[in-house]
């Protein structure tokens, strides 16, 4: 039984570890994209300019209402077609290019993460005591000083639980990219299943690996929350 999971040519251990590495790379690459989009969405949603607010609301509502897998296909097929059309227009001689599934995964999952993070961050910005912002203005801070010195450090604390949940969702959603042929943990598992004909064993292994990642993330996030909330007075 155990030799199935051995590293090297005899077992599937190394293939599955390689898939796990792709899964981790995808999640880590998507996180900054998602957080950046989240800040943009929150900025638009909280803007005083009505069209910007509508844009922010539209983005978060549409992205949160669509299945993640649909978003992934829209990005993978849509951006791929757009890219090819652009290349054809630029240089009619050039052949068709394949849009990288990894890039499609980062963009699609980043857009989904960004929409949810936008709502998390909007709530966090709203949770800041307005008196502190007024106090900052009163001592003559500029808007950007208020943002960097008062809002942002506290937004982190308010948003951390929500962003933590989104990170775990992101880890799980990376499994979807196996459908557009990226060699992540899920797809390498599928390859192993195809050869060994032991679907239950290998899918259970994949589940256990994802589970371990989630539980590990939860532990790290709990520690981060404790650290972010150090020095905050709590009701007894």
């Amino acid at each position: 039984m155990l030799e199935l999971f051995a590293l090297g040519d005899t077992g599937w251990g190394d293939e599955i570890l390689r898939g796990l590495l792709v899964t981790a790379e995808l999640a880590v690459a998507t996180l900054p994209v998602g957080i950046l989009l989240g800040f943009l969405a929150a900025y638009f949603s909280l803007s005083r300019v009505a069209p910007l607010r509508a844009l922010g609301f539209g983005y978060t509502t549409i992205m949160r209402g669509m299945p993640e897998i649909l978003t992934l296909f829209v990005v993978y097929n849509g951006v791929g077609m757009l890219l090819n059309a652009l290349i054809q227009w630029w240089n009619p001689e050039a052949g068709a290019v394949d849009f990288s599934p990894f890039a499609a995964g980062v963009i699609a999952l980043g857009m989904v993460f960004g929409a949810f993070a936008g709502e998390v961050l909007r709530g966090a910005f709203n949770a800041i005591d307005p008196g502190q912002i007024e106090a900052g203005r009163a001592i003559g801070m500029s808007n950007s000083q208020v943002f960097w010195r008062i809002s942002l450090p506290q937004v982190w604390r308010f948003a951390l639980p929500g962003l933590g949940n989104l990170w775990i969702n992101l880890l799980k959603d990376t499994a979807l990219v196996s459908v557009i042929a990226l060699d992540d943990l899920m797809r390498m598992t599928k390859v192993a299943v195809g050869v060994t004909k032991q679907p239950f064993t290998f899918y259970l292994l994949a589940c256990l690996i994802y589970w371990a990642l989630s539980v590990l993330s939860e532990l790290v996030l709990a520690a981060m929350e404790r650290r972010a909330n150090r020095g905050v007075r709590r009701a007894a």
Binding site: I168, K172, D173, T174, A175, L176, S178, M186, K190, V193, K197, Q198, P199, F200, T201, Y203, L204, A206, C207, Y210, W211, L213, S214, V215
Partner: peptide, 19 residues
């Protein structure tokens, strides 16, 4: 809650074939 639904679905649909 800690595993992807896709993996759960594959575990049931394809995994049952082993038994």
């Amino acid at each position: 809650r800690g595993t992807p639904l896709l993996a759960q679905l594959f575990l049931i649909f394809y995994g049952s074939g082993q038994f």
